[in-house]
Design a protein around this nucleic acid. Structure first.
Length: 273
DNA sequence: GCGATCCTGGCC
DNA sequence: GGCCAGGATCGC
């Protein structure tokens, strides 16, 4: 489900929790914990102050006192919500009870999400950091860096390139389609057949679309809400995603759907070459 | 690089 | 009942 803009909007909406202490932690039997344990996660969080919440790509990092971090990925169907009372959700896998009767709940029906932990500054040794590049909006991500990485994948098509989080992270299926449309590039083209200038237009299109997504509060297709329960407004601005056989939102051409790597790609063949 | 796979729920 | 879904990993 959530791509960089939704994760960022979730992060921003959780600001009311900063500086508050976690009084107790609930983890479900089926919580999607990887490279950690229920015991360890409870240990690093219980009774601790939440100092900060950071994001890299689509991962969230909850920094607690004593420099431990809870790592959380929303996967396909995950969401984080702040609530002010006890409540029973069928698929709640993590609940943090903060002071002042505030609850943070991680709801994830499909359990494609991830819960893990690491010591601050040990992230680079964590298994999930291995395949995670800087994201498109990170200060460290410059075009020259992106280009160098792209050139290591000459046989990859542009849609796969967009979704490959080890080249640059943050794009998912929606924003990948939108970025390729904005850059006027055929999603089937191989990196090897693209000029530096074309890759540059893709890079800056991705940054622009992701920033717009954040500004609009993220894309709500059906379920997405931020921590305060607010839906995103970006769906109204998507030019090609989920518009098969319709005109693109800007009326520049007819949208077609193809399947690449088992995932739908929406694009406009008359514009994207 | 590609396809299968992990899950549940909604829709036709 | 079958198909599809905003993600990422693990085989081959």
């Amino acid at each position: 489900m959530p791509e960089l803009p939704e994760v960022e909007c979730t992060r921003l909406s959780l600001a009311p929790l900063l500086g508050k202490k976690v009084e107790c932690v609930f983890l479900s039997q089926k919580a999607p914990i990887k490279y950690s344990t229920t015991h360890k996660i409870k240990e690093i969080i219980t009774g601790k102050d939440l100092h900060d919440i950071n994001r890299k790509g689509k991962y969230l990092f909850f920094l607690f006192e004593d420099e431990n971090e809870l790592i959380l990925h929303l996967g396909m169907s995950g969401k984080l919500v702040i609530e002010d009372k006890s409540s029973r959700h069928k698929h709640c896998h993590l609940e943090l009870k903060f002071s002042e009767h505030l609850f943070l709940r991680f709801i994830d029906p499909r359990r494609f999400g991830i819960l893990s932990h690491c010591q601050k500054d040990q992230w680079t040794n964590h298994p999930y950091s291995k395949n995670l590049a800087f994201d498109y909006l990170a200060d460290e991500m410059h075009f020259s860096h992106f280009l160098k990485k792209c050139r290591r994948h000459p046989k990859t098509n542009l849609k796969s390139l967009c979704l490959n989080q080890s080249i640059a992270s943050g794009l998912g299926n929606i924003y990948a389609c939108e970025s390729l449309y904005h850059a006027k590039l055929d999603p089937r083209r191989l990196v090897n057949d693209c000029t530096d200038l074309e890759l540059k237009s893709l890079f800056f299109a991705a940054k622009k679309i992701l920033n717009l997504g954040i500004k609009k509060g993220g894309t709500t297709l059906r379920d997405y809400v931020n921590g305060k329960g607010h839906r995103g407004d970006m769906k109204r601005f998507l030019k090609v995603y989920d518009r098969e056989s319709l005109l693109s939102l800007d009326h520049k051409g007819k949208v077609e759907k193809i399947v690449q790597q088992n995932r739908s790609t929406f694009w406009v063949p008359t514009i994207q070459v």
